[in-house]
Simulated scan of single mutants.
Amino acid sequence: METLPNRSTPLPRPFKFEEFWLSNISFPSVVSRAWNGGRDLVECINTFSRDASVWNKTHFRNVHHKKRRVIARIYGVQKALAAYPNNELNNLEKQLHQDLELLLDQERDLWALKSRINCMVQGDRNTSFYHVSTIARRNRNHIAVVMDDLGNWLTEEREVMEYFRSGFEKLYTTSHESGNRVSNLGYQCNAQLTDEVKSSLEERVSTKEIKSALWSMKPYKAPSPDGLHAGFFQRFWLTVGDSIKDEVLKAFSDRKIPDYLNKTHIVLIP
């Protein structure tokens, strides 16, 4: 029995901000360029997503592959030192160890973010713990086979996906276009807002409230569809803050939330 079948259906990989990008000194300039020019928040986010994807391929590529390559180079240098010791090889080994330490930190941050573990021991490189937590969560959430309404087992990945999709469509779809509203239930609701509360609701939201609301969010929980966590906006508040405040104030002024801010990821659990 194959308990962990390989994924045969290619799925689109959306953009996602990675915390270990912060370790590179050139990353803040990517953020600054995206938010430079007085563009709207949605334009800044789209520009940043595009530029950050290109920047990531140039500066990081695959962290795990780079780590294996650096380790292999260290082994090669150490073998050469054993046969022909010299200062040049000593300096190269020292530099490679520094590169490896940086890559290990990046790998730790990557797995910690993927594992979604809230409690992190600061300064402790628990890479293996985060890796195991991530793999365990993925295996626990993976559904390889399912039985349909006729009692048949569906084993193909595309069939399983289609079965769940059609099931949720039936669950959340109705043939009724409108419903009848009961006009009078025989009683009246006595709960009313006071004049003071009504007045406070009409007041203009302050920039202090906007910042306080952002800082009340956990930094690196599941991101929105744009791939940006709350921690990204908290970290670069001095750069992105004005565009966020303008967008929120505009939403309160127009009494309408932009469509892209209303989008979210919904996980439907079978």
Rank of each mutant, 00 (worst) to 15 (best):
G38R: 04
G38K: 04
E43D: 14
E43W: 02
C44K: 01
N46T: 07
R50F: 04
D51H: 02
D51E: 10
D51M: 04
A52H: 04
A52Q: 03
W55L: 02
W55D: 01
W55R: 01
N56L: 03
K57W: 07
K57M: 11
T58S: 14
V63F: 05
H64T: 11
H64D: 15
K66P: 00
K67Y: 09
R68K: 13
R68T: 11
R68E: 15
R68A: 14
R69V: 08
V70W: 06
I71S: 05
A72T: 04
R73N: 10
R73C: 06
Y75E: 15
Y75D: 14
V77T: 10
V77D: 04
L81W: 02
A82T: 04
Y84K: 07
P85S: 09
P85M: 10
N86A: 10
E88K: 15
E88Y: 10
E88V: 12
L89H: 08
L89P: 02
N90A: 10
N90I: 09
N91T: 05
N91P: 00
N91R: 09
N91Y: 01
N91L: 03
L92P: 00
L92S: 10
E93A: 13
E93Q: 13
E93I: 05
E93W: 04
E93V: 07
K94N: 03
K94A: 03
K94I: 01
D99T: 04
L100C: 03
L100W: 02
L100Q: 02
L100A: 01
E101F: 03
E101A: 11
L102R: 02
L102S: 06
L103W: 05
L104T: 03
L104K: 08
D105W: 01
Q106F: 00
D109L: 15
D109M: 15
D109P: 00
L110C: 06
L110N: 08
W111T: 05
W111H: 09
W111Q: 08
A112P: 00
A112G: 09
A112Y: 01
L113D: 06
L113H: 03
K114G: 00
K114P: 00
S115T: 04
C119I: 07
C119K: 07
M120G: 00
M120K: 05
M120E: 06
V121F: 01
V121N: 02
G123I: 08
G123T: 08
R125M: 05
N126C: 14
N126R: 14
T127V: 12
T127Q: 10
S128M: 14
S128G: 02
F129D: 07
Y130W: 14
Y130Q: 07
Y130K: 06
H131R: 15
V132I: 11
V132G: 00
S133Y: 04
S133T: 09
S133C: 15
T134H: 12
I135G: 00
I135T: 14
I135D: 07
A136F: 11
A136E: 14
R137Y: 08
R138H: 09
R138I: 10
N139A: 11
N139K: 15
N139F: 10
H142P: 00
H142L: 09
I143T: 15
I143K: 13
A144K: 13
A144Y: 06
V146A: 11
M147G: 00
M147C: 10
M147I: 13
D149N: 06
D149F: 03
L150V: 06
L150Y: 09
N152S: 08
T155L: 13
E156K: 13
